[in-house]
Design a protein around this nucleic acid. Structure first.
Lengths: 194, 194, 194, 194
DNA sequence: CATGAATGAGAGTTCATTCAT
DNA sequence: GATGAATGAACTCTCATTCAT
């Protein structure tokens, strides 16, 4: 029973995720969710009191998934520069993807909800990425692939650029070339004799 | 009469600007505007059919003001590095300001309205800033203050970092030190032997 | 305009009065009022936020009407005993009336709303009646019609009996004879050598 | 099983009694009962179809308890005036008690349910009390403690006053002095040469 | 018997929008 | 033009009631 309930809750969250990805955060009504999930009005309230609660669960799931990704998919033996290139390529893919992403909903959510830093998904993902990038840069320096005076600063710079690109891509059409240009610029800053 | 009407319209737009700054774009209702402007419900509809129309007028005004600022306030005879420092200082002030700004409303607006590039305020301001920065960097290179292999790229990089900082500052608390750090990092990239 | 609005408000209150008389206080929904008044949902909310507010206006009106009645209709030159008889007859009429009265709604309202004594309609009407009755009894004593050692106490006693009869009549069928009996009993207490 | 079921039914009724005492009759929902009893939703429906049915069972229990009380607790050998004083003291205690009583719920129930006289708890208790009081008064007359021309009328009068006091105490704050005053007044009517 | 998830009707409330004055 | 009362659609939320397990 409790298992079935958990099943259903998960189903709601996943369906809601799609709805939020399509419509953003604030325009989503409980009615939207009900219709998307094909459950009854009251049924939804059994699990979630309002869209905020629901969205926070979506975020939690998102968080977990992101953690899994970071943990699992990095090929240990690859060269740091290759890993970085891979990372940036993935970022590029997300930036240019035509599929509705949760990004806008996330922005909207954090616009109106002051969240303690530790629980702020955006901040956590940003900080995690900075840490990983810094490690990568240091590794690249050791292997002689990168040159950099301030690895932490460089990592942060990369992330802010990506953040800037992300918000740009959500508010205007960004050509692929523009993304490439920025990535290239950022990479050049890491190779000797830039 | 037409003069009086223009007067009234302007009053509405300016009041609406405050409302949008306080509440964002989507949560603002026609009712909010009516109450803030202390005009009649019907009166508002005489000038604007909905909040989108109204917000677009607010944006237009914003655009004009921004153009004025850019045109007017740059001290021609100052050193490029000083001008850049001034520019970044102003950006920093805006990033850390506690006063409600139109930023969130603007993001929300462009999240849901695909606007042709030429009319996209965010893009226009971004591009204008890039051009100005590029000119500044080139000037700095000539005067020997700056060293840079790709002035246009550097200008763009600075703007994306600022964009990233901006969205970060709207979605989480950003300490002043973090802003300083980024500005410093960006400036260091412009001086010889970084 | 404001005149028309007042007109409409009054119309709503009067219609609502009927609804409350028929259905009591708590079962009445805003929808009931809307339907009875034949106005729109939103229209009602223009004037009253909820049924409590509305009922309080009904009570106010009731209060005013009651005050008017007390002020106007007492024949000054009549004998005290006649006036008392008249008063009791009116009370009896109300007790036995088959027409829906506001009584139940009033009880329900005061069951769940603690109201400061000065604003408590029930208390005010009770106290007013006690005062009038006391005056009447004293007048009757002077004219030799009544004998009573504690006019104020007698007045209060009468009112509590009436209150008891009232609640009895709202919760069970009370035969006319029972009312007559009580009134007779009460009157006998006032005549010499009871 | 049937024993266990009876047990459970009784448990529900007793718990429901508390809920009705706290919230009145009409505001109580099946959900309230379910939560208070800590049984399942469906479980409750196995025994009671709605709150009316449930409340009627509560009333039945109340009736039985009341009968028990009347039957058992009267000290036979005491003086009638003492017994009456005791009775009134108990009434006073109930009138002034701050603990939630079933009174309001009972009123509400009988406001909206026309019940045949024989089954009307309020009427039955009223009539029983009148009979007891009458007997008491007659006994007091024989022992010379009381003087009264119409014992039945006096008994009824006392009960109506108490009924009036009861409804008064449920709809407004009643000071202890007011209750004392009424009881005194009523007692004085029973002693010779009032 | 007992459970509690699920349903859907219905109450409350807010606002965009219209329109008579 | 300007007003603001009026309308009705849309949304939130709560429960009585049912039913598969």
């Amino acid at each position: 029973m409790s298992d079935k309930a958990a099943q259903k809750k998960k189903h709601i969250i996943e369906t809601a995720r799609k709805v939020f990805a399509e419509k953003g955060y604030k325009q989503v009504t409980m009615k939207d969710i009900v219709e998307a999930c094909e459950i009854s009005r009251g049924g939804l309230y059994l699990y979630f009191q309002n869209t905020r609660e629901l969205f926070e669960e979506v975020l939690k799931l998102e968080q977990e998934d992101a953690d899994d990704v970071f943990a699992g998919s990095i090929p240990e033996q690859a060269a740091p520069s290759d890993i970085l290139a891979l990372f940036l390529k993935e970022q590029k893919r997300e930036l240019l993807s035509r599929e509705p992403s949760l990004n806008i909903a996330i922005y909207e959510y954090f616009f109106e909800n002051q969240v303690p830093p530790g629980e702020n998904l955006m901040k956590r993902q940003f900080d995690t990425a900075v840490r990983v990038l810094e490690k990568l840069i240091r590794a690249g320096m050791e292997s002689g692939e990168f040159y950099c005076e301030d690895p932490r600063g460089a990592a942060r710079n990369i992330m802010y650029v990506l953040e800037g690109l992300k918000i740009a891509s959500q508010t205007r059409k960004i050509p692929e070339a523009a993304v490439d240009r920025e990535i290239l610029y950022v990479m050049q800053g890491l190779v000797y004799e830039e």
